[in-house]
Design a protein around this nucleic acid. Sequence first.
DNA 1: TGAATAGTGTCTGTTAGACATTATCCA
DNA 2: TGGATAATGTCTAACAGACACTATTCA
Lengths: 234, 234
Amino acid sequence: MPNTDPDRTIIVTVDVVLFALLDKQLHVVLSRRPNEPFAGQWALPGGYVHKLEDADSLVAALRVLRSKTGITPPYLEQLYSFADGARDPRGWSVSLSYFALVDHAVLASAQATAPGFGFDLVDVNAVPRLSFDHNRIFETALKRLRDKSSYSTLPCYLLPEQFTFAQVHETYEHVMGVALDKSAFRRKLTEMDVLEECKGQRVGGAHRPAQLFKVKADVANRLRLLDRPLVVNQ
Amino acid sequence: MPNTDPDRTIIVTVDVVLFALLDKQLHVVLSRRPNEPFAGQWALPGGYVHKLEDADSLVAALRVLRSKTGITPPYLEQLYSFADGARDPRGWSVSLSYFALVDHAVLASAQATAPGFGFDLVDVNAVPRLSFDHNRIFETALKRLRDKSSYSTLPCYLLPEQFTFAQVHETYEHVMGVALDKSAFRRKLTEMDVLEECKGQRVGGAHRPAQLFKVKADVANRLRLLDRPLVVNQ
DNA sequence: TGAATAGTGTCTGTTAGACATTATCCA
DNA sequence: TGGATAATGTCTAACAGACACTATTCA
């Protein structure tokens, strides 16, 4: 390669670890790679950064997610950057990786309205061998999600916009993989002052109806991506 | 530009925020940029990733630090990746940023033995306008250091390998910017079981001599870079 | 009124901050 | 022996886990 400056030909991609809760179990979104390398193999949703389209890497991550799943997640955060000469057979490469959370119902309705999206939801305890170093990226994301859940409202973004206390409680337990005392959990969430009551109530059958909650607006603005992309939690 | 694929010409650099304690105040290492853009302006130590030299971005960060300061820090961790089309006037670019901690004495002796290193130590409360988006990177690093110090042994890496309890205590106070109760601090550090006694003792004058401590080996292996680069805390 | 889930109250052992006390050295 | 800093002990208020209790709905 006589005429190319090798330092200027580094591959830059974004890869997203998108989590959702299905059947009381944490799942991750995977796609089959359409092209070489690793054509036909499972991989995280990802792709090249497009210099002309993407203002920054967060926008690139959102574009990739929209094109592969049809959704824009309520939570998206930069995870880590994997950058070395061995992770991609084409040469030195950078993966700007992100992790995202979404309500499963949103994914399902996107899949229903436009069946062209070729992704699957896979139980996090049964993730197959992935392309590139995507298993490492996935493990890093899972660890980050669990670590951060113990002191944040992250698991709320796996739920619909409105949810009951029991749902949050159950979701935290499934994400963290441990049982949490109902009373202590409620107390903690209350004193953190991150949820607000919705006036509507929901009945679960022959019992006292449960209060609906949603994440407070100011917390949401700190943690959530709304229609306008914002850098989150850097 | 007819023949170039614009997506494949993204600039990839590493930039390091290196902290040290000087005169009881946190300082950061800055250099003057030798070349355009921003020639002559202050900047964080940084440079291009060298595909042929650097196995991965951590190795690149270590190489950059060695070339700009002559030292290999006892602590180095990936911070964040800043990737957009506006941060560098030459075009779309990625900064794989790292933050590092070192004992000031190590920096000083490197500067003394090889005066060719052109860097300065600047008080973190008096950082000037930096090149590119390096002010943003610096602020991110300072926040990360302070956040993480409250539940880790990070500040120990600003001290010599052996140190007294009073030194650790004082260092935490300077890093965090708050007063910490001596007794409670000692209790916490003891029960975290991260320090071990050194058999030597050190006298501070006409008073009871203080016990010397160092970070336990297993903690060091988790958090420290020794002679062989390891990915830390990803 | 009983079944089922929502939501609150109470008890207790642990912990963190505040501060007092003892220990050990040198001049 | 006094001065200085190291190191430990004690008191108390706040907190978290465990679990019991009350509340509200429908059948």
